[in-house]
Design a protein around this nucleic acid. Structure first.
Lengths: 207, 207
DNA sequence: GTCTATACACCGATAGAC
DNA sequence: GTCTATCGGTGTATAGAC
């Protein structure tokens, strides 16, 4: 039997090193692009040589995989924190969720690329790290269904609309807000299209 | 002075070699992914060594650049051929244009990635090869305006909706039609949202 | 277990012979 | 115009120091 505190300390240390590596990987991705990430860059940022990373990750794809899981987990946490602010009105909820997701995506384009586009040749997320993505979508489906949305495809459509605007914003107006400004209209169009009643309050987000 | 026919023959030969290289590049991109393209792969497909490509293109990015222009030009030609089938009804036109663009995109995901997403670190299309993309959008704006669409942003919104569905289709159901089937509903939602009259004919595309 | 050193095959790009 | 040779870079595997 191993000494429990020792095991704990070691595995905690290990976990911490993984954290540092992943943080460095995010840094590199943000400055060199997602596919511009290199192991040597990542390693040098944590004071290692590239091969040393293999003590903590099986391959470069394994790093991408962990990043994929982290990205969706980060968004999941934001969404959970946001749930307390959700009302019974689905249209309002859609506005809130759309804005949150849009801002989350645009704040870190490489992260969005990793989450929602197939950019890295040969990379597919492992089931383990794909799980948070599935959970987020399932939770959104529940929220929508509880508020009267019948067809699950309707939610998919909303996500497609938001995703389309995110794409345009990142590709054609990075750093700007040309497409961000169109988000409320897009959400209202969707809400009208799926038959949600018009909200009467003037609180609607039109920034 | 150079012999004119000779110049012609030489420059035609040169142009043909460029064509072969670009065709090979498309082949490689389709089989290895857009960012998985390598000069050695391209060269071997045209019976050359990699450095020889530099006699025809300044860099790998220059090849991407030419491909970018080709992709938008190809779509521009499809759109021009399609114009004869356009009616006066903007909703109908939107359905047709959406379907055409969706099919065009899904038929060749790396091409779509190159056209509409910023996937290659450091690559930005040259003004020359960006031009067809601008022309296509401008032509679409004219078509929409002629049929009564007032706000140019409304067309951008339609393109975002279509793009969002394309993303989902490519990333989450490649080869399938889960999101393709949602396209007509999405277009109708948009048409309703911008105040277009409902088409009364039963000819509507619901496949 | 953790890391380094070394090595390999591959990459984009350049120089220079032919 | 195309080749060979080569450069500095990449991901990755492995042997071995600690």
């Amino acid at each position: 039997m191993l000494d429990a505190p020792n095991v704990d300390r070691q595995s905690r240390r290990r976990e911490q090193t993984r954290r540092e590596i992943l943080d460095a990987a995010w840094d590199v991705a943000r400055s060199a692009g997602l596919t511009g990430l290199t192991l040597r860059d990542v390693a040098s940022r944590v004071g290692m040589r590239a091969p040393s990373l293999y003590s903590h990750f099986d391959s470069k794809h394994a790093i991408y995989d962990a990043m994929f899981g982290e990205a969706w987990t980060a968004y999941e946490e934001i969404k959970l924190a946001e749930e307390s602010r959700l009302t019974d009105d689905l249209r309002e909820c859609a506005h809130l969720i759309a804005r949150t997701f849009f801002d989350f995506a645009v704040a870190d384009p490489p992260r969005y690329q990793l989450m929602n586009q197939r950019v890295i040749p040969g990379f597919e997320p492992s089931p383990e790290n794909y799980a948070p993505a599935v959970r987020v979508l399932a939770a959104a489906q529940v929220i929508a269904a509880e508020r009267g949305l019948r067809d699950p495809d309707d939610l998919v459509l909303l996500l497609a609309v938001i995703g389309g605007l995110i794409d345009q914003q990142i590709a054609n107006d990075p750093g700007g807000d040309r497409f961000a400004r169109m988000l409320p209209r897009a959400v209202d169009m969707w809400a009208d299209g799926v038959g949600l009643p018009r909200t009467t309050t003037t609180e609607k987000d039109t920034r």
